[in-house]
Design a protein around this nucleic acid. Sequence first.
DNA 1: TAAGTCACG
DNA 2: ACGTACGTGACTTAT
Length: 605
Amino acid sequence: MRAQNRDVVYETLLSEAELDHWIERIEAAELTAIDTETTSLDEQQARIVGISFSVAVGNAAYVPIAHDGPDAPVQLPMELVLAKLKPWLEDASKKKLGQHIKYDRHVFANHGINVQGYAHDTMLESYVLEVHKPHGLTSLADRHTGRTGITYEDLCGKGAKQIPFSQVPVEKAAAYSCEDSDQTLDVHTVLWPQIEANEKLRGIYELEMQTSEVLFRIERNGVLIDAAELARQSNDLGTRIVQLEKEAYDIAGQPFNLSSPKQLGEIFFDKLGMPVVKKTATGARSTDEEVLEKLAEDYPLPAKLLEHRSLSKLKGTYTDKIAQLADARGRVHTHYAQAVAVTGRLSSNDPNLQNIPVRTPEGRRVREAFIAPRGRVIASADYSQIELRIMAHISGDESLLHAFKEGIDVHRATAAEVFGVTVDQVSSEQRRYAKVINFGLIYGMSSFGLARNLGIETKAAAAYIDRYFQRYPGVKQYMDETKLQAKARGYVETVFGRRLYLPEINSPNGPRRGAAERAAINAPMQGTAADLIKKAMIAVQKELDEKKPGILMIMQVHDELVFELPESEMDWVRAEIPRMMAEVADLKVPLLAEVGFGANWEKAH
DNA sequence: TAAGTCACG
DNA sequence: ACGTACGTGACTTAT
């Protein structure tokens, strides 16, 4: 068979003898690329349709197992194939690689196989080397080997006409799957030497590989959901939403779709003559929360909209949706994307468990539906002020380091400096201002941004910032140097050497360049925090595996780890988890993690 | 599919 | 003079 870009030898294994022969080859191989073809993109649901292996670039084999199309040949029985492969798959000394191995781990786990010996993941290699570029195999093969190939859409179509992989003709499936394994190996031969040659990147890559396995464990665990509680909340919210709609129609003098910003704009600005407060990016008249708050000072309708918006959000995104995603045991399994965020953070999807409401009492109730089974409890452990501590470490600013070393409330300390009072004299308003300033600094704020956030004059905000930088000159120096470094090298680094590229740092486009400059300031802090919690996850999971198999890690929310544990293990968790989280790195400031317990996530917070 | 909005750290 | 706080994902409407 001839592939598009080069000579390749791809085999389809239909007999036991052929399979045995290939098992000999992968047993003897130094490194084997694996790719699974499945019934579903949902990793918890997916069942194997076929498996391919590659042990040398240009050479691969496909084992069709569950093709059921009209002309599908007789295939080796699933139980036989998996039984023959299982010893090799579970042998840690047989090194394997893949593209997005977390997915394949799930797929094999769905068949009772716990794969050991995954040494490389081309997706993570790319993420470590070129975080700002795409990490799909098609992109990687194109960029690094110049090869193209059969796409999934070529094979299965798209949209309503898409067919399941199991109905793809075996010869086509074999060519596709072999190509994926082959290209994975090919891409690896290009990327791995680049990582291997750089000690820091090697460390980050190792961190990512180990994180991948921990994420697999977390995803597999899932979190138990109280579906009845969510249903009750949905009901309550529904009643209130309907009532608010009625009230809004009365005030507007006509019915309209409260969820349509366009219709809203017509009612607000044309019919009722409200002033336009600000425009959206595309020039439309904005009706976002900030605008509605402002208009609510003079008109009755915006307040109704605000409440309607927040309740609709809760119902539509959370109380109606989360239980739908629960499995037969009532647990929901999010997916953590490990190669999406350009700062090194994770992201969570289907469902996103990293944006469950917490800031309002009503929203927080959603967390009451994240529960532990009988006899068990939820624990939440989070880092305190992690990004500010990292700012203190990186900048080396004496005053900031001092505040953290002495365990002083950092916002209070900032307020004392900026407002020229003693720490004891700081008013709650001053502390609130200082908190906004501290957050703003992490984001590379301007005086304009600070002014808008505090609702004060830009000049006053500029004065606060000046004052801050006088008091914390190390922070000022860090920010200036970081920008210069970003411009010179095109990237900045975390404390542990993760590279964060900023392609637009020297853009002639002012606003774009400005955004890249702010990102340059923020990225080392956000990225180092991401590195730290990944280190903590690895250390904690290792300890749990060795000593406490009954304690499950079930969620990560950037600076927080959530666990489900037997009530009898609360003392252990209270002592050990924060300790391990704090000890993952020895920075110029102490790290602090705090833990809470409860029958549900809300109470554990 | 894009735009607008809003949930989180 | 310009635009203006970092990073995500999901939902709804409108095209």
